[in-house]
Design a protein around this nucleic acid. Structure first.
Length: 190
DNA sequence: AAATTGAACAACCGCAGCTTA
DNA sequence: ATAAGCTGCGGTTGTTCAATT
């Protein structure tokens, strides 16, 4: 990753890229004990080699307990479209109207699924097509990914120095079951 | 079965606004 | 009054996975 070596010998390294489970745990535990905010200080105090920005993003988008992950419901989709027509790309504002959804998630959803259809369809009928499409995808996908499911890079894809994580790294799924994840948190915390 | 393409998601970057010393 | 630091936002890119050829 990005490593900057300070001449003095001390390394000021800033990690980038996907978060590891260990980093997530550190961040969650720290926030559980000290609260969120003052991200730069938090990053340093927690011993994370991440920028405050990165910590904030990770927390807000994935680690917060109330974050909802998984398929956007047709109702939510309608709401997103409605609010977007009113407010434009004010993602954070739109996200506030959708409890548990993050601006990043909504932004991605819009760009990948809605925008191109709006471009192509360009009418109210695209509402319908989109809704039906949503319905089908939410079923077709089959995987109910509700609840926080942080994903982690497979050990072999990350640099070896990353961590010899003592954590369960499933062979093909790099996911933690929600329960496992939070259980692990409480296990580590307090 | 392998290669290619496209979709979805996660994370980083740059900028603007706000706060504080 | 202003400079510096921090936070939040929106845009963009990179990676992975699934579908298609």
């Amino acid at each position: 990753m990005d490593k900057r070596v300070i001449p003095g010998g001390e390394e000021a390294e800033v990690r980038k890229g996907p978060w590891t489970m260990e980093e997530d745990l550190i961040l969650m535990n720290y926030i559980a004990n000290h609260g969120e905010g003052v991200w730069n200080t938090l990053a340093k105090s927690a011993g994370l080699k991440r920028t405050g920005k990165s910590c904030r993003l990770r927390w807000l988008n994935y680690l917060r307990p109330d974050v909802r992950r998984g398929n956007i419901t047709p109702e939510e989709q309608l709401l997103i479209m409605d609010l977007h027509s009113r407010w434009g790309n004010r993602w954070s504002k739109i996200a506030r109207q959708l409890p548990g959804r993050t601006d990043n998630e909504i932004k991605n959803y819009w760009r990948t699924r809605i925008q191109k259809k709006v471009k192509g369809g360009e009418s109210s009928e695209c509402h319908n097509s989109m809704l039906s499409d949503e319905a089908s995808t939410s079923q077709a996908s089959g995987v109910e990914v509700m609840g926080a499911q942080p994903s982690y890079p497979p050990p072999h894809t990350t640099n070896p120095e990353t961590f010899g994580t003592p954590f369960p790294t499933e062979s093909n799924d790099n996911f933690w079951a929600d329960d496992e994840f939070w259980a692990m948190q409480s296990f580590n915390g307090d």
